[in-house]
């Protein structure tokens, strides 16, 4: 593992290596599990917030900056990243979160990480320093490279700096739980709540209940709560601390197999059936992304076969030796051409 301290050093490592993969804190260990010939580049020394002006609703940070530092700095100014990046206390970095393409429960209300990233600095496969996007909250100039790099797993560039849009953090939050017998029931509840007037900030399903969150002024939440509890008799108030556990993925063990599966409400029951048949745990964020877990990594193969059958795909975040991609995956000729556009010598990525 190399630990460069400057962007120029990162460029040198790229140019002088056969294959490289940039890593942050390796909180999604399957994503940094690489063959021996791949040189890992730790971005931990390229860390720190470069620019932050609360009045602009934007900040820029080096890729290796821990989320913990960013979240705390924003909170001190009453601002936040509404998509709830995961693993904040676990040490995840902003660059790793972008490359993995991960958002938390708050993605339900205002969109995911892709909807808040504004600009990037990165190195292509030749070690050339490049920028994409612009450091302002609105921009339509040039191709949207920042979005493209979200979830790209380091295959198209080594991120060195990222700029995000932030929002003012509403003063209060309130949590409700609604017991659900199964995913079909949960999906029906989520569909109804998602198009209703209450404007939930998050709607998760953990296999036994829906967890719903509101944000806003306390006086408004108190009034909304009365209406919600009245209209939705099964609902009851829950402890806000539940979101801390979800953010840190405490619903799964540190070892074992953890797979992210984009899903829809209509497909949720089929996905739950597959997972139940394999004794796998399930946590669903916003009805649109499921996290499937089993303590035994060898369940990777059977999960793969089952996901193919229901036309869903998954990305493994944890699970040494598990396959990286599960189920459906799309291949296009243009994907190969694009890889060459960013990385002609195939130096980047695991």
């Amino acid at each position: 593992m190399k630990t460069p301290s400057t962007v120029a050093e990162v460029a040198d490592i790229i140019r002088s290596s056969k294959r490289v993969l940039a890593v942050g804190a390796q909180t999604k260990p399957r994503l940094s599990q690489v063959p021996d010939e791949v040189t890992l580049i730790s971005m931990r020394n390229l860390s720190g917030i470069v620019e932050y002006d609360p009045g602009e609703f934007t900040f820029t940070a080096f890729a290796g900056t821990p989320l913990r530092e960013i979240v705390a700095t924003l909170a001190a100014q009453g601002q936040y990243l509404p998509f709830d990046p995961p693993l904040v206390e676990s040490g995840a970095t902003i660059g790793g979160t972008v490359a993995a393409g991960l958002s938390g429960p708050g993605r339900f209300r205002y969109g995911g990480l892709r909807d808040f990233i504004l600009a990037v600095r990165f190195l292509d496969g030749n070690g050339t320093q490049l920028r994409g996007g612009a450091k302002v909250v609105k921009n339509a100039a040039g191709f949207d490279i920042p979005k493209f790099l979200v979830g790209s797993l380091g295959r198209f560039g080594v991120l060195t700096e990222v700029t995000f849009k932030v929002f003012p953090c509403p003063p209060a939050l309130m949590t409700f739980e609604i017991p659900c017998a199964n995913a079909a029931e949960a999906a029906a509840h989520i569909a109804k709540a998602a198009s209703g007037r209450w404007e939930f900030d998050a709607l998760d399903y953990d296999g036994t209940r829906i967890l719903a969150r509101l944000r806003g002024p306390q006086e408004a939440l108190d009034l909304l709560a009365a209406d919600i509890l009245n209209c939705w008799p099964a609902a009851k108030r829950a402890d806000n601390a539940v979101w801390d556990g979800i953010r840190e993925w405490r619903f799964v063990g540190a070892d074992g197999l953890l797979v992210k599966i984009p899903v829809t409400l209509r497909k949720l029951p089929a996905l739950e059936a597959i997972l139940q048949a394999r004794n796998m745990a399930l946590h669903v964020v916003g009805g649109s992304v499921a996290y499937a877990y089993h303590s035994n990594v060898s369940y990777s193969e059977t999960l793969n076969e089952a996901l193919v059958e229901v036309s869903l795909g998954g990305l493994t975040l944890r699970g040494f030796g598990a396959r990286l991609c599960h189920g459906d995956s799309h291949h296009s000729a243009v994907a190969q051409s694009l890889k060459l556009a960013f990385d002609p010598c195939h130096r980047l990525g695991a």
Binding site: G101, S103, R107, G111, G112, R114, F143, D144, I145, K147, F148, L149, V150, G151, S152, L153, R155, F156, K260, P262, V263, T264, V285, G286, S288, V289, G313, G314, L315, C325, H330, S332, A333, V334, A335
Partner: peptide
């Protein structure tokens, strides 16, 4: 070539071809 990027889910597994 006819391609399909993204889909009905609000989430995806990257890279984000739809965004590009």
């Amino acid at each position: 070539e006819v391609v399909e990027f993204g889909g009905p889910s609000r989430e995806s597994i990257g890279p984000d071809y739809t965004g590009l």
